[in-house]
């Protein structure tokens, strides 16, 4: 591993930090659009946000190949060292880490019989609030919920609608900013609101 990556440790307490981070991601996907704090590693290698680092360290291992998109590709030795995960092409990866919303068609959406054989997109965004307002409804939401992450493309709602039409196939999204995560599981409907 390059020396500059070696200086960035993983979880301070691997067992309990992974547990706390998992509970944050679980709640985030069970209650879409709500924000949850993970227990991140102290000093993740740039440009990785603490939340994205925590999600990787919590969920990725040798059984779950990951694709590091764009500028995250340089972090492959760090991810391999801390998780044992092999790098994979987007369509074959259990997780894709990116800071730009990938074309859903390039990711695995599962099959009708095995919809869980799909890619989870870990999307690092500048912030989970202050962006254009989206209105969510579906499982995990009592009526509707407003969610306004920054960093999503302008045509996000239309692209999500195409993803939702595949249900129960589809892509699940875990959005990360700072030490906070939010989830958009494939089961929910998203509308743009003015």
């Amino acid at each position: 591993m390059p020396a500059d990556l070696l200086a960035h440790p993983g979880f301070a307490d691997p067992v309990h930090d992974a547990q706390a981070s998992f509970r944050a991601v679980l709640q985030a996907l069970a209650r879409p659009g709500t924000l949850w704090r993970v227990a991140p590693p102290a000093d993740p290698p740039p440009p990785l946000a603490p939340a994205a680092a925590a999600v990787l360290l919590t969920l990725v291992d040798a059984d779950a190949p990951v694709h590091l998109a764009g500028r995250f590709a340089a972090l492959a030795p760090w991810v391999a060292f801390h998780t044992g995960s092999a790098n994979a092409e987007p369509g074959a990866a259990a997780f894709v880490l990116s800071d730009a919303l990938a074309d859903f068609a390039t990711l695995a959406a599962g099959t009708d019989e095995v919809p869980e054989a799909s890619t989870t997109l870990i999307l690092q965004v500048p912030a989970l609030d202050g962006g254009p307002k989206l209105t969510l409804r579906g499982p995990g939401i009592e009526t509707t919920r407003n969610f306004a992450p920054r960093g999503l493309p302008a045509d996000f709602a239309a692209r999500w609608a195409a993803n939702r039409r595949l249900y129960p196939r589809g892509i699940d999204l875990v959005l990360c900013a700072g030490s906070t995560v939010a989830g958009l599981p494939r089961s929910i409907f998203i509308a743009e609101s003015s």
């Binding site: 998992f22 996907l29 599981p185």
Partner: peptide
């Protein structure tokens, strides 16, 4: 187990 649980939550 955790990866499985997250998928389970996404497909009720």
């Amino acid at each position: 187990l955790r990866r499985t649980l997250l998928k389970a939550v996404a497909i009720p």
